[in-house]
Design a protein around this nucleic acid. Structure first.
Length: 277
DNA sequence: ATGGTTGAGCGTCAA
């Protein structure tokens, strides 16, 4: 059946992702996010809250009552909050064997059929872009390679969405200065090539899908700038990918840049995609 | 080349 025209079978789905950088510190900001984006599903990273201390009543308070979380003390941690019921995918890998709470996968029953959604928090990788000198960088490369292999081994992905803080800005205009960041962790060739190889296991970069390659696009601005907007030394670290069979369902993207000015802002801003899936 | 700021939670480590 042709899309568009006549009566649409259902309203578009909105999926948002945000590195919240401490859920307990910024839980009040979730209302600002849901007011601005009205997502059906919200994926969070760096929740920094162990599961036993997760605020179980919060998801319902922001209108996203179905939730899953995987957290630990102090570091990492991911969560998925949803208006739509879902089923947790329980057989997902323990990435790099570390048990460090960087991934959650769920299966959503949507009008067009089931969709598998993956929420990732890829290791940042430390400061030195050399895996021999820096075990955090080695971990990052191993993690991305393992993720690529996971999706490559699963055959062509179908009705699958990957979101999260992938901690890599893959394209030249995903950073404020391609030349000056070539040796900076997040934009080194070994990372951008690894991320591209992962994406090419069958996914479309759903946000870049709408933004021309010659246009700068950032989702993160360091805390280490007096005026983040004036200096605008940003990077695009947060991503939404959809399997290629879903590319035609994409309707629009939003990077909620205003969130960087919220009181007590995260250094990342929310990213959202709307699709008829 | 360096430094700059923030969060968790009390040491510094991670980003």
């Amino acid at each position: 059946m042709a899309r568009g025209g006549r009566s649409e079978p259902h309203r578009p789905l909105r999926i948002a992702t945000w590195n919240i950088n401490s859920l307990r510190l910024r839980r009040d900001r979730l209302t600002a996010l849901t007011d601005a984006l009205e997502p059906d599903i919200l994926c969070l990273q760096e929740t920094k809250v162990p599961d036993e201390l997760f605020p179980d009543q919060l998801p319902a308070e922001v209108g996203l009552p179905h939730f899953a979380r995987r957290g630990m003390k102090s570091y990492n941690g991911v969560a998925i909050l949803s208006r739509i019921p879902f089923e947790l995918v329980k057989d997902s890998p323990d990435w790099c064997g570390k048990g460090d709470c960087r991934h959650l996968a769920v299966r959503l029953d949507l009008p067009g059929g089931p969709v598998e959604l993956h929420n990732f928090y890829v290791p940042a990788g430390g400061d030195i872009p050399d895996p021999d000198q820096n075990p955090k960088f080695a971990h990052k490369l191993a993690f991305v390679a393992e993720a690529r292999k996971h999706f490559a081994d699963g055959g062509t992905p179908a009705r699958t969405i990957v979101v999260g803080d992938l901690n890599i800005a893959p394209l030249e205009n995903d950073v404020w200065s391609h030349r000056q960041l070539l040796d900076v962790v997040s934009h080194t060739p070994v990372e951008t090539e690894a991320l591209t190889a992962w994406c090419k296991t069958g996914f479309t970069d759903a946000v870049r899908h709408f933004v021309p390659l010659d246009e700068k696009l950032f989702t993160w601005w360091s805390y280490r700038n007096r005026d983040w907007r004036a200096s605008d030394r940003g990077r695009r670290l947060d991503h939404i990918w959809v399997s290629d069979d879903l590319t035609g369902t994409l309707e629009r993207q939003t990077v909620l840049k205003d969130a960087r000015d919220w009181a007590l802002a995260s250094d990342h801003v929310p990213v959202c995609v709307e699709m008829r899936v």
